[in-house]
Design a protein around this nucleic acid. Structure first.
Lengths: 229, 229
DNA sequence: CGAGCGATTGAAAAGACTCAACCACCGTGG
DNA sequence: CCACGGTGGTTGAGTCTTTTCAATCGCTCG
């Protein structure tokens, strides 16, 4: 169970922040940041923001996981990204001055801080390191998505599943992967039934083990092989 | 035939620039930009940069079209984007300080200017409007790619072809679409043969007309219908 | 005029999806 | 404590889309 008393969360002691975009703030800036943010507890399935709504600030994940997704024409979700502690979400649409093109939702109970648009934009103005970090981050994600597109277009579902599991091992920090079959399918980009069948194959091949919804990766090497370069 | 005497190209008179990221430069900045850029003529199929190489600056398309693509495991290209006059390419990897994750190649004969990394970065430092424009641009592209991924994952090839043709109408500025079948297939994310068959369907349905490799869109409305939301 | 590459067609096979049914786990209320 | 209902997970069968491979066609350029 997660500690809901987010009063104890501070930017100064936030573990995730160290490796994040906010990792290089000086103590003055940290102080300022800490006093301008709010922290909230999110239940599983609770939305951070909805596709179509207007950005009012950025979210910074202290604990928990957040899925970023987009709905296709038939309403089926495509998961674009899963954000983990230390990551910031929701700032991309803030820059475009358009409504969110994706939605964000907590995958598990989470503590998530919020920094208002103005505060964040001010910080960016006055802090070139932060600003450059963001430009760099955006560019990296662009490259990742080019990869994603190419995988989606050229790999089989089996290959994509292997690829996705490798990503998820990182997201879940080498703990068992704990996602609904549907979310998993929506990340891989396939039908739930197909996903389940492939999971079974992987199990029979000794690549993974499964305990109800939890997936343990046994043979990471093999996943790399299957996923391709 | 393209005018190869790029000596006559100047930033001040560059038509594409008006609506581009460099659209808001003052005359001093334009002067500076103009004297720090070089302009080159590119033959069809000539590379601007290769996947894996290191960025040394940004390219600004004066005339012509450039495909941005990525090779999958089997060497098959996936076209991620086609850039048209006024667009800048190659700056994303410059920010990440990593080698290019995509390649860029002229689709037709083109005049393309080059601005060195240092010059460009300096301009960005001293020009907040440019800088913010870039951040905005990166964010927009991120949203576009989320769309692309979702389409790839959830739409049929037929739907994706319709979608792609709409994009290409814009790229080709409502002139006939003039791409090899292979490039077209690599943009849609399908096999060349499949693409050809679907093109035939569209032709029979009166949606397009074809003259050798040139495609004329007759019924744009219908394409929208097929492409979905 | 011939070579060669891009475009096209056909047939067969593979991969993935849909639909329908069934199972299993979990929390609820009686 | 147990039956119940519901949601999420699993399986099977059939179908459809898309790919693959092989062959042919037809420009275009030297």
């Amino acid at each position: 169970m997660l500690d809901k008393s987010h009063k104890f969360v501070t930017c100064q002691t936030c573990v995730g922040r160290q490796n994040s975009l906010l990792g290089h703030l000086c103590s003055d800036e940290l102080e300022h940041l800490n006093s301008h943010r709010g922290c909230n507890y999110y239940k599983k399935h609770q939305a951070l923001f909805l596709e179509g709504s207007f950005p009012r600030g950025v979210f910074c994940i202290n604990q928990g996981l957040v899925k970023i997704f987009k709905r296709g024409d038939e309403g089926k979700e495509q998961i674009i990204h899963i954000a983990k502690p230390g990551e910031m979400v929701g700032f991309r649409a803030m820059f475009t001055e358009e409504p969110y093109k994706v939605g964000a939702e907590a995958l598990e109970e989470s503590n998530i801080c919020f920094i208002s648009k103005d505060d964040f934009l001010n910080m960016m103005d006055s802090n070139p390191v932060l600003r450059n970090g963001i430009i760099k981050e955006l560019s990296k994600e662009l490259a990742d998505r080019a990869d994603f597109i190419t995988n989606m277009a050229q790999k089989s579902v089996r290959e994509r599943l292997a690829f996705t599991m490798l990503i998820l091992m990182d997201v879940f920090d080498n703990q068992p992967i704990n996602l609904s079959r549907e979310d998993l399918a929506n990340f891989v980009g396939t039908a739930t039934e197909t996903l389940i069948r492939l999971l079974k194959d992987f199990k029979e091949e000794g690549i993974i083990e499964v305990q109800t919804r939890k997936i343990f990766v046994i043979d990471k090497q093999r996943l790399h092989q299957i996923a391709g370069k």
